[in-house]
């Protein structure tokens, strides 16, 4: 396994398979995620993209940003389309109708297309164990349609369908545990990643693609437009999400959980929340609720990692 975090940028291919000149907003982290994804995956890859920001900004005819074969069919079915690509490639290679040689089949969806409307198709593909990497870029709301809440939106975040009102202070529910759902399918590989840790992310992509079977990477990718934050703060936000523990980086493989970073302590969540307009209305009590929830989840995850590693020995 290549260690990008040791050799850093010199080992990363210069070729841009996700071309500049697409239509993403300034400071768009999902676009960055796709750029890193394809640098790690390389040209022997094929992508099925769900409807969403990344589909729209990259494929407005005739300005295509894709240097690999790419298909978009609809919103909720990227996993099913990717499953079809995988089956088709497998049988055509077996019958000698197309060249042999491994092709990485990658499905891409946002949090709306994955946590919500695409969850059934995703579950089906994961359950079938198809040789597909599913990448969910999570910007925590339906940004393409104008910042509506999804089940990936964290509690109290203000969106256009969970506005911070006088009686309801934003999103009422806690974020759904997507990576946990994927791991519950007992798939080959699951990881969380962040655009603030590109080498870690690219290594995870390489690792996933070197593993046969179904895989999921959940990448945290802030949206300056939807989060009411400065484009310049996007990487900082992505890093703070990891450092505060609200979006921990970990891997799941063969029943074992591994924390990707060894954080000696967690920064207080307030440092992360205060530079986002979607949390402008938060009271100290609400911040405490967020802090307590993340502490519980973080401790549970660390416990799970320790326990599963112990069991594996």
């Amino acid at each position: 396994m290549e260690k990008f975090n040791v050799f850093a940028s010199k080992l990363i291919p210069e070729a841009e398979l996700f071309s500049p000149g697409h239509k993403a907003c300034q400071g768009c982290a999902p676009a960055l995620a796709l750029r890193y994804l394809l640098k790690a995956a390389g040209p022997n890859s094929m992508v099925a993209n769900a409807t969403g920001c990344m589909e729209i900004i990259s494929s407005a005819y005739p300005d295509m940003a894709w240097g690999v074969p790419w298909i978009h069919v609809a919103f909720e079915n990227a996993a099913a389309v990717a499953g079809g690509l995988e089956s088709g490639i497998k049988v055509l290679q077996r019958k000698g109708k197309i060249d042999k040689g491994h092709i990485n089949v990658i499905a891409i969806g946002g949090d709306g297309g994955t946590f919500d409307i695409g969850l059934q198709a995703l579950s089906g593909m994961l359950e079938r164990g198809q040789d597909v990497l599913y990448l969910c870029y999570d910007n925590e709301a339906y940004m393409n349609t104008g910042i509506q809440r999804s089940s990936g939106t964290p509690i109290f975040a203000s969106t256009t369908t969970s506005p911070a009102g006088k009686s309801v202070p934003g999103q009422r529910t806690f974020k759904k545990d997507l990576a946990g759902i994927a791991a519950a399918h007992n798939v080959s590989y699951v990881a969380t990643a962040s655009v603030a840790y590109p080498f870690d992310f690219m290594e995870k992509v390489k690792k996933a693609l070197a593993t046969r079977g179904s895989k999921l990477i959940h990448i945290f990718a802030p949206c300056p437009t939807g989060w009411k934050s400065q484009p310049k703060d996007i990487i900082k936000l992505a890093r703070l999400a990891v450092q505060t523990g609200i979006f921990p980086l970990y891997e799941y493989q063969g029943g074992v959980y591994n924390m990707s970073l060894d954080l000696p302590f967690l920064k207080p969540i307030k440092t992360y929340l205060k530079i986002q307009g979607r949390y402008r209305h938060l009271t100290d009590d609400m911040i405490n609720i967020i802090q307590e929830d993340l502490n519980l989840r973080y401790d549970w995850l660390k416990g799970l990692a320790a326990l599963s590693q112990q069991e594996a020995k």
Binding site: M46, A48, I71, V73, A74, E76, N77, A79, A80, V81, A82, G83, G84, L85, E86, S87, G88, I89, L92, K97, I98, Q120, A121, G124
Partner: peptide, 14 residues
């Protein structure tokens, strides 16, 4: 829904 979606993927690779 996934049957037709997967069929699209299968046919798309030939």
């Amino acid at each position: 829904h996934s049957a037709m979606s997967a069929a699209c993927g299968m046919s798309a690779v030939g």
